[in-house]
Amino acid sequence: MAVVLPRLAARLAGAVFVLWMVATITFFAVRLIPGDPAQAVLGGPGSQASPEALAAVSVEYGFDQPVIVQYFAQLGRLMTGDLGRSYALNIDVGPLVLSQLGGTLLLAVLALVLAWLLALAVATWSTRGGKVAARVGSSLEIVAAALPHFWLATSLIVVFSIGLGVLPPISTGDIAGLVLPVLTLAVPLAGFLGQIMRESLLVALESPFVLSARARGESERGVRWVHALRHASLPAISLSGWAFGSLISGAVVVETIFARPGLGRTLLTAVTLRDIPVVIGVVMIVAVAYILMTLLTDAASRLVDPRLRLS
């Protein structure tokens, strides 16, 4: 414990720092919008906001104050969990974003799990046999990793919903409605993770400790499960934090196509309407989720690799 606590404290401090910087960047980025910031909050130059509305927004956001005062005021609001109010929807951003978080998290976590399973399956299968399996495995991975979400989603809908009629083209809220969105997110990620796993699996299978294990009479299955797969999973684990982030980014497309409620769709709507408070709110909550996920993958790495626990 004595060793764990300071490290944990350092990690948490780092996380808080990143969040603070994210808030800072978004705050000043919004100030880059040309023209009156109140106008920007009200939907940009194209919107026809009344002077009264502009004045009200100016006062509400403190645009009449010096920038530095505004900055600290915003930080203060963030610390109390106040993410502002959506202009377009006229509701508080905090509760809105939180209500959308669950759906996206479910989607992302399921996709991450499925991607891991697919990647493991392809990697182990393609390193087992001869050259043909290796070629096929490697090609599958490259093509899968190159599939754009929006095209994969459309193709899946054409085949499974329109062609075969077995799965709903838009989310229905039940499990059947989850299948296509999760597949859409998982397949490209599986291709990406699979490439990494296969490379490191091949390295592990060629290493002297595997030769030692074989010389002790370990079977091929044993060599993989006891030794090689553990080594092969390490780089994929440490990339899972990044992968999770890319899944949330992918949710923007997937939730839009499958008409699923969630952070991604909320974000896209807000971007289209230039609903700045909602955009900032989503960005902040994604940053929090991403940071938590990196902390998790860090812990998972330490679980699998005892060497990390030593130093």
Binding site: P208, R216, G217, V226, H227, R230, R307
Partner: peptide, 20 residues
Amino acid sequence: RGKDVGLVLQDALVSLDPLR
């Protein structure tokens, strides 16, 4: 293997599984 014949390799740092 292991029962009728044993094998010792160079450099146990990499010849023993570093994770176990």
